[in-house]
Structures are given as C-alpha cells and as structure tokens.
Amino acid sequence: MTGELAIKNLHVQIEGKEIIRGLDLYVKQGEIHAIMGPNGSGKSTLALTLMGHPKYQVTQGTISYKGQDLLALSPDERARAGLFLAFQYPFEVSGVPLSRFLLQAVKARAPETKAQSNGRPVRRPLGQFRKLLHEKMEILKVDKSFAGRYLNEGFSGGEKKRVEVLQMLVLQPEIAILDETDSGLDIDSVKIVAQGVNSLRGPEFGALVITHYQRILNYLKPDFVHVMVKGRLVKSGGSELAEELEERGYDWILQEVGAASTESAEEKGADPDERS
C-alpha cells in the first residue's frame, strides 16, 4: 500500500498566535512536493508540527499517515511510522558521537521496518551499519571523521545540513520533510545534497521540500510545487511554477491572492488547486 501523508484543514498556534490557518496537503510515497513562499508564511511551523514539536499546538484539522492519526503520536512514534525531518537549524548535542547516535536510531526504528517488510534489512549488525554509513557519507561527500564527532557540535552551517541529509539516507524514511536544507549551501553543496535526496527516490520515498530557491528543485524535479502565504497554500502547480517564482518573485501571487488574507476568503484558500 502506498502511504499518504494527509493534512486536512490544519490550524496551528504557537503561544496563542495562529500561524497555520487552514492548510490541506497530500503527500504520497513516490512524490516530491516543494513548498515555497515568503518568509514568515509558516513553512517551518508546518515542518515542526508534522513531527510533533511540543510548542506547536494544533487547534483544528488532522494529520494522518497510512490512515494513522499522527497527532496522537509522539515525535519518536512518528519517526518510527516513517517520517523524517531535516531541520533548518539542527541542534547541537554535545558528547553524542554521530555514528553511535545513528546506530541507536536505526535500532529504535528496526521493529517497525520489520513490520512493513518492504524487503529492507531489518536489523543491521554493526559491520553492516558502518558500511551503510560510509556509503552514504560518500554520496554526500561527508568526511569519515564526522562519524566520531559529536552531533553537529562545531559543524559549519553547510556541514550541519549535509549531516541532516546523511541521517535521512541512513534512516531511509518513507516521507521526508526537508526544511530549507539548501539555505546557506554553496552551489556544489546544493548539488550534492540533491543527489543525496535523489538517491532515495523511488516508489517508497516521498518528500516535502521547503525552499526559497529554484536551484535545488532543478535537481530534484518536484512533481508538485505549492506556494504558501500566511499559513495557507495559495497556489499549486508543477515545476514550471518554481521557475516562474524564481523569475517574478512572490508579488504577483500576493496580488493574485490578495483577498486570501481577508476573512471572507478563508474557505477558498483551503483549496489551492482550484485557484491555479
């Protein structure tokens, strides 16, 4: 069965302030969706809410994956259900070596992967894990010495982003959310990271890529591009939409959907497909 991450009429608050205001989105395994949009439109809030960050409060709507209510699950249960988030600002965890941590994460996820029995290895002995890790490090051109370094501690911004993708490649999620993974990366790094993501592409891998730039999308070739404004998806299309945004910016969309920010347009804003 192809899994579908289904987000319906999502409303999210932080400290009493509504950030996401009626958002619908469906991401199936095998599909790549891009979300673009001006700063402050709620993209990171969406990413963190999908993983269950305790500060974000869902006041309305539902999030489910494979029919399972994700809102009832803790972040680790969501991870084990197949979700992954590459953080925009990964946290440093001092004293926790990357490889030891990843091995623990792989083990923590193992029982669920067994249940799915997608032909993936269920439990990897240590040697196999090391081999997998080194393989993935090679794809992302991450130096092997990083395996023994403490998680994100003293990493440059670019190294942190690559290591986020490295974690994704090792953990092999079904649905990955990449929150501005390309921000702050040089041209070569964007390409490497995109290659990493592409290495997972296939019928079992879906992704939600949050970005400000078309560049990474040139490599990822998303199936769908959505524009998020003020907590809603206001426009959706194919790759060509990203190109248009790169050329023309967001102003024209803001004008086009200017009414969307008023109360009367709330219902219409919830269905971006009709708009485009």
Partner: peptide, 14 residues
C-alpha cells in the same frame, strides 16, 4: 535537544 533526538526515533527516555 530532546525533540531533535526523538524525531530520529529515540523515545523520550532514550
């Protein structure tokens, strides 16, 4: 930090 680690599949105690 706890949240970050949990998103990788570690439970809260881990």
């Amino acid at each position: 930090q706890i949240f970050y680690l949990m998103t990788r599949g570690l439970n809260e105690n881990q």
